[in-house]
Design a protein around this nucleic acid. Structure first.
Length: 724
RNA sequence: GCGGGAUUAGCUCAGUUGGUUAGAGCGCUUAGCUUACACCUAAGAUGCCGGGGGUUCGAGUCCCUCAUCCCGCACCA
């Protein structure tokens, strides 16, 4: 027996070597898998941000998916797990911009587009290596030969093709719409990139002619020449829609027009409001309904425009108090409510205060009808009229995309129903450039500059989720008709965290539905988030971060994986507990010692039937759990079996009265149970099981040379699963 | 406001379709270096399964209700 069994299991010595063995085998690539594999099973890894560092969330996610993919590989499926990274445009650019500002004291405009992009790419490249190596250390059996990066050449072709086809279909349009403008990042962001924070502020009641209006934002009120109330509000029935009133306002006398609209909540405040269509979505919609004028009050940097008169050029924060002072002097301030709780919208990435603005942007029309060419989505026939929203709804409703977690399915529909057109242009530089060219009034959509003089390229880049939405098929070679696409799309499973259900999952369904007439995945299994022991998110400000690599070095990858998986039902949050990881490290050592005990004897005799039957029952039960994604139960069952049945009972019974001997009738059984337990445990603890397996095989070979036992050397990775 | 989830042992959590004495890890108590393993072994303590009501032969599991907590989404001027 190998002398390494004389010391406790050493993951540090083992894991790198075993991972290399796997990589060299090529078995992570489905093309190299042995045997007849008619059925495919594929997953795409939710691509982590290139600039990120592995955190426990990634560790948990990769442990889950790796366990599933290893199980399916052993079950004889043609398994593909595709790795990739995302550029996360806004997050990455703002990070590098900060670094440049700090180091060189230059803003992005001073540095220039090309140089900034160069720096970002350099930075991205460096962090890419870090995160990929960290993912490998988790034991992830990803097919690295199919690695994709959101901004690489193949993905660029996919993005441009997708844009062009949707443009030609009229589903991508350019228009003036109210968008979420981030004055700090100098870009628009999507609704999903906004974080709402509760803040205490003041709420003012102002005299607006005969009315009292409430506002938390007096600085937007300069342009307010419409006063709106509910048509059914009896208090104001004397005022008619369209009626004009002369009244005194901030900078003198104005003419106000009465508008009646049902969007007004009669219960709120006085039931009367003035509107600022340029800087508020609800107001914008009211203005659109009645064909009202819209005026810009605040510029792109959060400063007041000349319309504000004496307040022009001021930042909104400082203007607010001054405007109130003036109103008070003029006797227009009715009262001030202190401690008013209002929700402030901030940009998740930059922390900037969102200022809605009307801007010309590119949008994906989600409610516009178009004729779908080929559809394999149940309920949508090829050649019929449909909308992107219908694709999103029917894909899930029909069960073509299974979302077995009831709660998440409901919130998916809830989200779809409230969906607006998706703004896809971003005023930053890092990302896929919008493939559109302008010449005067002419607009041309193509990746290449059109012939002729005077064409100017669109300055903006696409929302990072536009390229992410193509991920399931852009990683398989689309728009080319590849064999991969044929074999592995729709993918079998997607397993992201719940925070990107709307951002990513629904948009993949949209894109795949439009471009392929197909769903992007057959099943969605949302997993929970890893939190600290108190249930809080990991964050820099709380300084409660746990570095998975540190855990790996302390306890080994196998222990970390099991510690994250056991006791966590799919979809529930994981509260991270280091003592649990330590417990599974002890388990790894236990298994190590079982192997040591068994391997110290030569295999002989027959397998005990009742032990075999008992094990087969366990294997069957565990397989059902695996197939139903009850990984936490499967993991716990094999754990309990190995420790409390195999070690505590069967091995104890097998000990002979003679010191250091095993009853001969047990030996074959112990070999059988060890071998097959290793198989059942392998998806969860790949390293130690493979390591012991290799020893087992080496011993067999030794026997083989004496002509006593036939066997083949192989990797546990591709061993057949011990149950039907 | 709309929607989702949680409440089980001191702590962190399991408990799939309702079915015999409710489980795991860590922690705790006691005894043991027993020749695979002290990263261990053996024995043990600890639970009106949030409160109340209901369905059922039978409920931690299904229904209603109350309470507390958490999380999404939307938003009020």
């Amino acid at each position: 027996m190998n002398t390494k069994f004389l010391t406790p299991y050493n993951p540090q010595e083992t894991e790198g070597r075993i991972y290399k063995l796997w990589e060299e085998s090529g078995f992570f690539n489905p093309d190299n898998l042995p045997g007849e594999r008619s059925e495919s099973f594929s997953i795409v890894l939710p691509p982590p941000n290139v600039t990120g560092v592995l955190h426990l969330g990634h560790a948990y996610e990769s442990a889950l998916q790796d366990t599933i993919i290893r199980f399916q590989r052993m079950r004889g499926k043609k398994t593909l797990w595709t790795p990739g990274t995302d550029s996360a445009a806004i997050a990455t650019q703002s990070k590098v911009e900060k670094m440049v500002q700090k180091k060189e004291g230059l803003s992005r405009h001073e540095l220039g587009r090309e140089k900034l992009i160069e720096k970002i790419e350099q930075f991205a490249k460096e962090s890419e290596d870090t995160i990929l190596n960290q993912i490998k250390r988790m034991g992830a059996s990803l097919d690295w030969s199919r690695y994709a990066y959101a901004l690489d050449d193949k993905r660029k072709v996919a993005v441009e093709t997708a844009f062009q086809r949707m443009f030609e279909e009229g589903l991508i349009y350019r228009g003036h719409r109210i968008v979420n403008w981030d004055p700090k990042g100098q870009t628009t962001i999507s609704d999903d990139e906004i974080a709402h924070e509760e803040k205490l502020g003041k709420f003012y009641y102002l005299k607006y002619g005969p009315f009292i209006i409430g506002t938390a934002r007096p600085e937007t009120k300069f342009g307010d020449k419409y006063v709106v109330m509910h048509p059914g509000d009896k208090r104001y029935s004397q005022y008619k829609h369209g009626e004009k009133l002369e009244l005194e306002w901030i900078n003198g006398s104005i003419t106000a027009t009465v508008i009646k609209d049902e969007a007004i909540d009669m219960e709120f405040g006085t039931g009367v409001m003035t509107i600022t269509p340029w800087h508020d979505r609800t107001d914008f919609e009211i203005a659109e309904r009645h064909g009202l004028e819209k005026e810009q009050i605040i510029d792109k940097y959060g400063r007041l425009l000349p319309i504000a008169g004496e307040f022009a050029e001021m930042k909104i924060g400082e203007a607010r108090e001054k405007i109130i002072e003036k109103l008070e002097k003029k006797g227009l301030l009715e009262k001030t409510e202190e401690n008013y709780v209002h929700n402030i919208a901030t940009a998740e990435r930059t922390g900037g205060l969102i200022e809605p603005q009307i801007m010309e942007q590119w949008f994906v029309a989600v409610d516009k009808e178009f004729k779908i060419k080929n559809s394999r989505i149940p309920g949508i026939e090829s050649g019929s009229l449909t909308t992107l929203k219908k694709i999103m709804r029917l894909s899930v409703e029909s069960g073509a995309v299974e979302m077995p977690q009831e709660g998440f399915r409901k919130s998916y529909f809830n989200w779809i129903d409230n969906l607006h057109d998706w703004c896809i242009s971003r005023q930053i530089w890092f990302g896929h450039r919008i493939p559109v060219w302008y010449k005067g009034e002419e607009v041309h959509c193509d990746s290449k500059k059109p012939n002729g003089e005077g064409w100017v390229e669109d300055e903006d880049v696409l929302d990072t989720w536009f390229s992410s939405a193509l991920w399931t098929f852009s990683t398989l070679g689309w728009p080319e008709k590849t064999r991969d696409l044929e074999s592995f799309h729709p993918t079998s499973l997607i397993s992201p965290g719940y925070e990107i259900l709307p951002l990513w999952i629904s948009r993949m369904i949209l894109m795949s539905g439009f471009h392929l007439g197909q769903v992007p995945f057959k099943k969605v299994m949302i997993h929970g988030m890893v939190r600290d022991k108190e249930g809080r998110k990991f964050s820099k400000s709380l300084d409660n971060g746990v570095d998975p690599i540190e855990m790996i070095e302390k306890y080994g990858t196998d222990a970390l994986r099991l510690g994250l998986l056991v006791g966590t039902a799919y979809g529930n949050d994981v509260k991270f507990d280091e003592s649990k990881i330590r417990g599974y490290k002890n388990f790894a050592n236990k298994l190590w010692n079982i192997a040591r005990f068994v391997l110290s004897r030569e295999k002989e005799g027959d397998i005990k039937k009742e032990l075999q039957e008992e094990f087969d029952l366990l294997a069957k039960d565990l397989t059902e759990d695996m197939e139903s994604y009850r990984l936490h139960l499967a993991a716990e069952k094999i754990y309990t079996y190995i420790w409390h049945r195999l070690a505590d009972e069967i091995i104890e019974e097998s000990k002979s009265e003679t010191k250091g001997e095993i009853k001969s009738e047990y030996i074959a059984s112990l070999y059988y149970l060890l071998e097959n337990s290793l198989k059942l445990l392998h998806p969860f603890m790949p390293f130690i099981t493979e390591e012991i397996w290799q020893e087992l095989k080496a011993k067999m070979r030794a026997l083989d040379s004496r002509g006593l036992q036939e066997t083949a050397d192989s990797l546990l990775v591709i061993e057949p699963w011990p149950a039907k």
